[in-house]
């Protein structure tokens, strides 16, 4: 495992299976990463073609998300994601078809039936909780879900994700403080891509590593290379095991790259040095993991081609399915304003 005590993203990626994972799990990780990336790319295509009003991307975060997701048990743990967590929600069971319905705001969208913006993932049957657009609000919900789990003596871990930008919100402080006081079974996962829309990390905080803040709450804090899914899995698994055993919360910071603009409404050329982006692209986590898997003989060219062909077919199917799906029924506009 490669951990950092000062910032920066490493370039090593391991492809040997850690405790709890087999080599075929590593290939599954790779598949989820490629699926998330390919789906995301298709969403941009639909946006640029005028079919999808809004896209917000996971590109550059896939290794962190998939590595972390593998440490969780989707049938009993609760995921409280943020808008970049396409890789995580795929692992929790949302399908490309469902995600395309959400992107195009169609009736069958399982998150919300076309009521939520894309990227605001949620599905009760998949234990995924939708959030709102103000950032970091979800970390409070995750902490409350952990409170409920402990209250009911359930074997549930709440996992929540937030960008490093969200950690500047008071919500983040209040949630971590409360979670630590009561040793709640929750893991706070910061996907640090260095930008809060256009504001670079150095203008968001005077520290190198968000995880250093954990000390102030009396919980463990770990910074990990978010381009290495195995490293992330290892750190995440330790945090999840600790939470499940009653040991309380952990703050994990995965250093990742943002390989796209903030969203489809943003042009990052106005604030981002092209050289920096080029350097980040050179460390693309999917390219890194693929090379490592091949070097270790866990993945062959033929397997990779087969995986990519299957994923392309799946995404073609999802796109066509969503494009043909009906829009929400206007008769249901007022449905569910109240629950009773």
């Amino acid at each position: 495992m490669k951990q950092f005590d000062s910032g920066g993203v490493g370039i090593e990626t391991r492809a040997t299976a850690p405790k709890g994972l087999t080599e075929s799990d590593l290939v599954r990780m790779y598949e989820y990463m490629v699926l998330a990336r390919s789906l995301d790319e298709r969403m941009w295509l639909l946006n640029r073609a005028g079919q999808a009003p809004f896209v917000i991307s996971c590109q550059g975060h896939e290794a962190a998300q998939v590595g972390a997701a593998f440490s969780l048990q989707p049938e009993k743990d609760v995921l409280v994601p943020y808008y970049r967590d396409l890789g995580m929600v795929l692992y929790f069971g949302l399908t490309p078809r469902e995600l395309m319905l959400s992107l195009l705001a169609r009736k069958g969208d399982p998150t919300s039936a076309g009521r939520q913006m894309p990227g605001h993932y949620g599905s009760r049957k998949h234990n995924v909780i939708t959030g709102s657009s103000p950032v970091a609000t979800q970390v409070l919900h995750a902490t409350g879900i952990a409170l409920a789990a402990k209250y009911r003596r359930e074997d549930t871990v709440a996992w929540t994700c937030v960008g490093e930008g969200g950690t500047s919100q008071g919500d983040f402080h209040e949630a971590l403080n409360f979670a630590s006081i009561h040793r709640l079974p929750v893991v706070f996962f910061v996907e640090n891509n260095g930008y809060a829309i256009s504001v670079p990390q150095r203008k968001q905080m005077a520290i190198e590593n968000v995880a250093d803040r954990a000390a102030g709450y009396g919980m463990p804090g770990v910074t990990v290379d978010g381009g290495d899914p195995v490293a992330v899995y290892t750190v995440a698994r330790e945090a999840v095991d600790r939470a499940r055993a009653g040991g309380g919360p952990t703050l994990i910071e995965a250093k990742v790259q943002r390989l796209t603009a903030h969203s489809s409404d943003d042009d990052d050329r106005t604030y981002r040095d092209p050289e920096e982006l080029k350097a980040e692209r050179a460390q693309d986590p999917i390219v890194r993991f693929r090379a490592a898997l091949m070097e270790q003989g866990v993945l062959t060219e033929a397997q990779d081609a087969d995986i990519r062909a299957r994923i392309k077919a799946q995404i073609d199917d999802a796109t066509e399915f969503a494009e043909q799906a009906p829009y929400p029924d206007p008769a249901e506009l007022m449905l569910h304003v109240y629950g009773s």
Binding site: V78, I129, T143, G144, I145, A148, Y151, E174, F178
Partner: peptide
């Protein structure tokens, strides 16, 4: 703690968690 945002935010989460 003196954390109004957390009091209601946690309540929202706990309510979704079945309380």
């Amino acid at each position: 703690p003196i954390s109004e945002l957390a009091i209601v935010g946690l309540a929202n989460g706990a309510a979704m968690g079945g309380l």
